[in-house]
Design a binder for these strands. Sequence first.
RNA 1: GGGCGCGUAGCUCAACUGGCAGAGCAGCGGCCUUUUAAGCCGUUGGUUGGGGGUUCGAGUCCCUCCGCGCCCA
Length: 529
Amino acid sequence: MSTRKYTALEQVRLDKIQRLREMGIEPYPPRAERTHTTQEARQAFEEAERQGKETGPEVTVAGRIRSMREMGKITFAHIEDEHGKIQLFFQANTLGKERLRFFNKMFDIGDFIQARGHLFRTRSGEISVWVHDFKMLAKAITPLPPDKRTKHTPFSDPELRYRQRYADLAVHPEVRDIFRKRAAIVRALRDFLDRHGFLEVETPILQLIYGGAAARPFVTYHNLLKQRLYLRISFELYLKRLLVGMFERVYEIGRDFRNEGISFKHNPEFTQLECYMAYADYRDMMDFVEQMLVEVVEKVLGSRKFTYQGHEIDLTPPWRRVALRDALREATGIDIAQHPTGESLLAAMKERGIEPPRAAPRGKLIDWLLSTYVEPKLIQPTFVYDYPRDISPLAKSKPDDPNTVERFELFIGGMELGNAFTELNDPLDQEARFLEMGRTYAADDEERHPLDEDYLQALRYGMPPNAGFGMGIDRLTMLLTDQPSIREVILFPHLRPEKGGATEGEKGQTPSTPERVFAKIAAATGEDA
RNA sequence: GGGCGCGUAGCUCAACUGGCAGAGCAGCGGCCUUUUAAGCCGUUGGUUGGGGGUUCGAGUCCCUCCGCGCCCA
């Protein structure tokens, strides 16, 4: 019994499976006997040609049928494996009429096949396998979608491409290339950090107290321990504990989870790199990041320059460094230094016809101005530095200006790519900041964070001065693969369920606070919350 | 969360002010011994995203729900 109804097209192929089995042919045999990839087969033939031969060696190739052209007593087909295609040539004189008919009738585009034969060139010059024998490796039931380049019927529906990424990948080699490049980026970052004395570590994803960023968490529940847990929104507080533990340089590459909106640059789970360097400050970190990205990009792309969405981006150092105050003054005419309070800043904004979406504290207004008026224009790599203290509770204040912290964000291609501070290592100041945040944020503000007493305890043992940096791997991949949406660089991006919509009983109401969610989870799992 | 747009055959898309749901591709049957967007002849295929309403009559108009995209938060 099937979990869904088969289409008429699928039914045809199911019938073929049935008939194959009746003929004693297993449509899903356990083993293949490939001797050459398509690439190796072509190379083998070219080698034979260099030796003056007209035919190449006998090879057994395997792959997915991508096209079939039946022409009476001969049939052409292309098969594809991971790295390329090769044409198969089936001829009645070689195989016998019945065997050729068997191929024509029982094999379809999308099936995996293995074919043995010698290599040759067709009259039109294409290297092909003159098939002596062939074998079904895996019968496809659902027809493959046509690829994007097919003139009449491109497979272009983004929803279907993301929902059925396997089909998208199967027919679009260039989509496979994005993920190869992504792997190369991560490898190059690791390599760079390892060579610079960083230790790669893994810290908890399930956390009792979340922190390190301003974001809403996903919540979950450990049944046996009756523990409320959060999926981490950043690695920051754990990695910095390791500096207390006398590791001087640590990094982690992994998944963060943020229970927030989805957009072309936001996915609920995304991959982050964070690294921490003892005895360095945020200026050292700028130099380090510059060096790291230049090297990574050169390794992956072979150049310091690349095009992102029509913009030529040049990573040749030194990158522009601009104080947040100057960047905002340039973009909006407002000097935030003249407006030490939210009220004053808001008044200045309104004077210039700038209307924020909602009333907010000073730091949040500045953040909004930055992302609205500055960020989209920062195409070339730019460090924006010196941020308001109240939106940076983990960063150290500037010695001469307690309301400004030593923090920078990195922008490339109009996107925020990374964030860094001279880390706050004064346990008393950190405690004061946590308490201050608790007062500034309304009790029901979902970005209000619980106070992490254990983190303060770690600081009390003494943490060396250090700088930390976090960067979105997905966004870096977007830049280096010239993709306009984060979904193009995540293999299985988050989508709503195709059917059903909201979970039963939750329609129309969002359980907005973790407390309410815990109550629901506990009820659903039969545990006391 | 808000605004705009989209949802029709397996895929890509048509269908005027409401009036017989169509094409190309693929599929199926046939012809074809060097094709590669093969070609030629014939042919099958529909819960028009789900539900409700208006109407003699709804793909089209109204309400609602679901999904996707773009823009805004």
